[in-house]
Write a protein that binds this DNA or RNA. Structure first.
Length: 766
DNA sequence: TTAAGTTAAGTTTTT
DNA sequence: CTTAACTTAA
């Protein structure tokens, strides 16, 4: 099939590996013993437990080179799977550098794109059309909403999101609707869920669509159902490597197991300490039980860290040591001790953002770092806003990774829906989305009539549109539909001789999409136009990079990108992202912000049914965060923070206290800590939310009000002058009663009006 | 049918 | 505080 492989008969037998004999060997240079061992173990299952920064990507790429150059393996038979396109791209690049000839026939891609590639060829076997569309979470929600309506489920009680998560976790563990139904017997709740699941799959099938989970599930189904196809791929992929193995779910594991079933040359690389996707179905037992699943498996631990300073590594080790369920390992490094870990506690989240911005500026000014050497990491996307504001003020170039995916922005999705409809009008969702964008005077009533007609005749929505005049009850609305259908049809014929970018430009032109936004003349509209321009840029670059650019090809590529993929190291900007997105990356200077109990670890994990397990996952996330830093780590938190418009008072994250004290620069103020009552503050914040304000009028004539707060007594009332340790004197304006505490609003003479918890603020009556 | 206006609900983390 | 969803008037 492929005639260009370099045949070399050099055989590296497993037990004959002696590093001394490998001297002068380019592949083996700069590798420690363990790494070399991993590179040379090419036959049979291999589990590489690679600690953070232990050079696992280097091992994988060198192993690939070794397979080709030394073992004479055809590049065509090698597959490497990662989780993100970015990781795949990086690996591809590094493999290209080291392998050189023939490297482009190696499959380096994500789980999802691997599956898409397979399904595009064979999914017709499962009754889908090979030009299926991929639904993102927005689309899923739309489908689910519709289903709930039809099944008469009150979405006030049962949220769409809930059903979607039930379905998703079922799929993650390879439970199909039929099996789910069987398991649901006798359980009323589950029976309802199974009906929804059934219906959901039916709708997707009718729309010739797959969701993200389906991509994996359907591929597994295909392999199980079609021996020939499985055989073909087993024969093709004789050497399989999986990166970030700790994040695989049951379905993905099954997929790999099937693929590697024949030759069993499966090499997986992972770190159980960096497993942070349990919420997405990642099954930690895939790594913990690898040896049980593959009894002949060889296990190699990579424990030497090449990334971080000793101090940073010790801090990380100190934290992760508190996890009970983990494989034993001890990371060490030859790197220098380095700076201590900086710790700062601020009064407010604004101060925290100020500090980070200021610190970055001074480090850049002193030529210590460039912007791109710095990263700000946080637990939740919402935290990015404060930093963004400050960075704009301070003129710091930045890039925020995550949040709303570029391709799920409204304007981008609208235009993509046009492209989808032109490409393949079987996706009802896309057609419905754009039929009245821009406004064509086609409203809800018309849509329902068409949809009813379509389902009655078993047509797709678009086919129904084409024969609109036959639909009863439409009346003059059908005349409004005709131009739309005509437009789509015309564009389809133009697809023959126009490029994708020209098609997109014509859509923008004909629909007046941008013109409409220009007329709006708001900042928001301008941002949308910019996004549309960016989309055009992406189309053009796709056309330039793809061998044979097709509209379907573009849409497919677009469906599977994550925001992290757009990160470009050549640009000099500070990167802001969640801890989850940061996995796999490294920066000389890292700011870990918002290290507060209730925020990180999140309130959800502390209050969950299984706090131990969830806290361990949060701790792993913290470990990931710390180990991103190469030279400098700065940890910060705020006493007071606005969350959902409410002021919260959080104590320093428990994870900070797990870092050995001697590694920290800057103190965790102990006195403050002791004052914090037994009841965790976030609970008070929660109960205060439901609190009712004590009416101002009620408090007069101002008697001595003493209120029991559980462990404290308020000796002041509204109108009293009080003194605060930091803010000085002020007048009590309002007292809100919470479950266990009081939220007091005080107008200070100098510090302005503040809201604070009574037991926390220690106000002194004057 | 649309646009504006009001109200309710929501924040972990993502391919 | 923000966004989505719902209501009402034109």
């Amino acid at each position: 099939m492929v005639g260009y492989l370099r045949k070399k008969t050099y055989i590296c037998s497993l037990d004959a590996i002696d590093t001394k004999h490998q001297k002068g060997n380019r592949i083996m240079e700069q590798m420690n013993e363990k790494q070399q061992e991993a590179v040379c173990h090419t036959k049979g299952p291999l589990l590489i437990l690679a600690g953070a920064g232990s050079g696992k990507t280097r091992v994988l790429t060198h192993r690939t080179a070794y397979l080709i150059d030394k073992m004479g393996v055809n590049p065509y038979s090698i597959m490497a799977i990662t989780f993100t396109n970015k990781a795949a791209g990086e690996m591809r690049q590094r493999i290209d550098e080291i392998v050189g000839f023939g490297s482009d026939s190696i499959w380096v891609s994500t789980f999802h794109s691997t599956c898409v590639r397979i399904l595009r060829r064979h999914i017709d076997f499962l009754g889908f059309d090979t030009n299926f569309t991929i639904y993102d979470s927005d689309d899923q929600k739309t489908v689910m909403k519709d289903i709930c309506k039809r099944l008469e489920i009150d979405t006030k009680i049962y949220k769409e999101k809930f059903f979607l998560s039930v379905i998703s976790s079922a799929k993650d563990s390879l439970i199909n609707p039929e099996e789910f139904t069987l398991n649901a017997q006798g359980d009323f709740q589950k029976q309802r869920q199974s009906r929804v699941y059934m219906e959901y799959q039916k709708v997707l099938k009718a729309n010739n669509a797959l969701d993200f989970d389906d991509l994996i599930v359907k591929t597994v189904e295909l392999f199980m159902a079609n021996k020939e196809v499985l055989d073909y791929y087993q024969e093709r992929f004789q050497y399989i490597m999986v990166d970030e193995y700790q994040d695989t779910n049951t379905a993905q594991f099954q997929l790999i197991k099937l693929l590697a079933g024949k030759y069993k040359n499966l090499c997986v690389v992972g770190d159980d300490d960096q497993s942070i996707y349990k919420f997405r179905g990642a099954n930690i037992y895939n790594i913990l039980n690898f040896e049980k699943e593959f009894p002949s498996a060889k296990v190699i631990k990579l424990e030497q860290n090449y990334r971080s300073t000793q101090n940073i590594l010790d801090a990380a080790n100190g934290v992760i040591a508190n996890n009970i369920s983990r494989k034993d390992k001890a990371l060490w490094t030859k790197n220098e001790v380095g700076e201590k870990v900086a710790f700062h506690q601020f009064d407010t989240a604004y101060d925290e953002a100020d500090y980070v911005a200021g610190d970055i500026i001074s480090k850049v000014r002193n030529a210590k770092y460039e912007y791109k050497n710095c990263a700000v990491l946080y637990r939740t996307n919402a935290q990015s806003r404060l930093f963004e504001e400050r960075f704009i003020q301070s003129n710091i170039p930045y890039k925020i990774v995550g949040g709303v995916n570029f391709y799920s922005r409204k304007e981008v999705k609208d235009l993509l829906s046009y492209l989808k409809t032109i490409d393949n009008a079987r996706d009802d969702l896309a057609v419905k989305r754009i039929i009245n964008v821009p406004k064509r005077g086609i409203g809800a009533t018309t849509l329902t009539r068409i949809a009813d007609y379509a389902s009655e005749k078993e047509l797709t929505f678009y086919t129904a549109l084409r024969s609109a005049e036959e639909i009863p009850g439409l009346g003059r609305s059908s005349s409004k539909i005709a131009p739309f259908v005509l437009f789509i049809q015309v564009m389809r014929t133009k697809l023959e001789f126009l490029s994708i970018s020209q098609i997109l430009e014509e859509i923008i032109e004909q629909t007046g999409y941008v013109a409409e936004l220009e007329a709006e003349d708001t900042i928001e509209a301008k941002a949308r136009i910019e996004n549309i321009d960016e989309l055009l840029t992406k189309v053009v670059s796709y056309e330039e990079s793809a061998e044979t650019p097709t509209l379907s090809g573009f849409l497919e590529e677009v469906a599977l990108v994550a925001d992290i993929d757009s990160l470009d190291e050549s640009n000099d900007y500070v990167v802001l992202m969640t801890l989850h997105s940061a996995k796999g990356l490294e920066f000389p200077q890292v700011y870990l912000a918002g290290m507060e109990d209730g925020l990180f670890p999140s309130y959800m994990s502390i209050a969950s049914d299984n706090p131990t397990e969830e806290l361990e996952e949060e701790r792993r996330l913290c470990y990931v965060g710390i180990t991103r830093a190469k030279e400098n780590l700065s940890i910060s938190c705020a006493r007071q923070r606005m969350i959902r418009g409410e002021t919260q008072y959080n104590r320093v994250s428990r994870f900070v206290k797990e870092i050995p004290k001697e590694l920290l620069e800057g103190e965790i103020r102990k006195e403050k800590e002791l004052e914090i009552p037994e009841t965790p503050v976030y609970q008070k914040a929660k109960s205060a939310f439901k609190a009712k304000p004590m009416a101002l009028t009620q408090a007069q004539p101002k008697p001595f009000v003493s209120v029991n707060t559980g462990n404290k007594i308020l000796d002041y009332a509204i109108g009293d002058t009080v003194k605060h340790v930091k803010f000085g004197t002020g007048i009590v304006k309002q007292i809100m009663e919470g479950g266990r505490d009081f939220e007091v609003t005080v107008e200070f003479e100098t510090a302005g009006t503040k809201k604070m918890f009574a037991s926390f603020a220690k106000l002194q009556k004057q």
